[in-house]
Design a protein around this nucleic acid. Sequence first.
DNA 1: GAGTGGTCTAGACCACAGC
DNA 2: CTGTGGTCTAGACCACTCA
Lengths: 257, 257
Amino acid sequence: MKADADTDRLELFYTASLQVAGDKPLYRMVEDHIRTLITTGHLIPGDLIPSEAQLAKALNVSPGTAKKAITNLVWEKLLFRHQGKGTYVSRVDFEKNLFRFFSYGDAEGRSIRINKKTTARSLQQGPSNICKRLGVAEGSDLVYIERLGVIGERPILVEYSWWPAAVVPGLEDESIHIPDYLYALVLNRYGVPVVRAGETLTAEAADSKTAKVLDIAKGTPVVVLKRIAYTLNDRIVEVRTTKGRADRFSYKAEIRR
Amino acid sequence: MKADADTDRLELFYTASLQVAGDKPLYRMVEDHIRTLITTGHLIPGDLIPSEAQLAKALNVSPGTAKKAITNLVWEKLLFRHQGKGTYVSRVDFEKNLFRFFSYGDAEGRSIRINKKTTARSLQQGPSNICKRLGVAEGSDLVYIERLGVIGERPILVEYSWWPAAVVPGLEDESIHIPDYLYALVLNRYGVPVVRAGETLTAEAADSKTAKVLDIAKGTPVVVLKRIAYTLNDRIVEVRTTKGRADRFSYKAEIRR
DNA sequence: GAGTGGTCTAGACCACAGC
DNA sequence: CTGTGGTCTAGACCACTCA
């Protein structure tokens, strides 16, 4: 019955009455409680959290305090509200980040969609520098995926991606279709949500392999994006390097107060 | 007397009772009112705004509503609060933006300060592409400033900056000391606040001039940052191109929900 | 001590979603 | 119709700042 699921979810909130009360404000403890449920995976993106009233009752605070805690988390984009329905846990939107930088053509317009073709995939012992970044033992089995990003027929970027084979066993299998949004596949097939990533951006001269696939001369400047992706509890699940044609790359930012 | 200044400031808030009431929520109208005072220059960065209680009384809303409006603007970083003192208009912090990308050395540490030496300055008729970007007539008088950014003795970046001479008359004069933070000078000397900027980031091969000052080989990848800076009412006051050594550049981002 | 923002509560009424 | 979040109000008490 639906009521059961609701009750189960609510129970998460009936714990030891909001940690041992520190000197933090009440609403802060409510926030932290929800934050913890999210980072530990008890709540995952898309989940509906209890209503403000239920939350207030469960945690024994006034409705206004529960509302304030939720409001703060909404400002932090950890949650979003939908009037009449409830409050949900947000998804990570990687497209809204460094990736969107590779824009093309439509000078002022929105970002055009980049399609990705998988150009290579294999199971192999990882190079030591990759293993180090992944935080796994040297020589561990890794799944390697290489993808070419194109707009129309024009190559824009190449991705070199590495995953511990233990996390995504069998992903090297050619029969598994890799969608543009790789993380969706990993979540659905392996139940591993990517919840966070760190990225570093630089530029360097194109190596010969990259130059070839991007159809540029070796030594031409390319934009280099290194990403480390994390799942729950700060476990690293992917190390990725993206190299993109500088002439088809642009990052726009608006600086305001 | 101090009371006069306070009264003057407060008067800004006694206008036509919050625009013609649209169907917007009350707190939204309070927000917009404050936002307008800021973008029109009636309130400038660093200004103290009336207390929540005064605001509520002046605009004829309840204290809770005034507080909510202010809280939202604080989340938007347009305002900041200081308990016991009051609420202030924020300053633009350009250092927290694309600029901070040029990090150097201290792998994990904070960003190291970049010192800037003015290497050239002059009054001249602007190149047509610059005039176009500045939105002034072709051949207008512009002040040109060239600065070299260094950490210690190592060159990191060069800046090529253009201002309409009408905005900053006499700035080409060698006797005017240009501080690292150019906008502070422009604000103090000419009363022109830079309130906003748009930036674009790309990479390209170093031209010979840039290569020389940055002490790299011509054709080496450099990171290129183009900025258009605005003062009040969306008037463009500066067009700047920054070129930095890619090997000493790195932009780190954290992607979260 | 007077004034500011910070916390916390309580409750009324509205607007929207979904059965 | 019920439950959800959204708006708006009112007021108590606390913590900080500064004269």
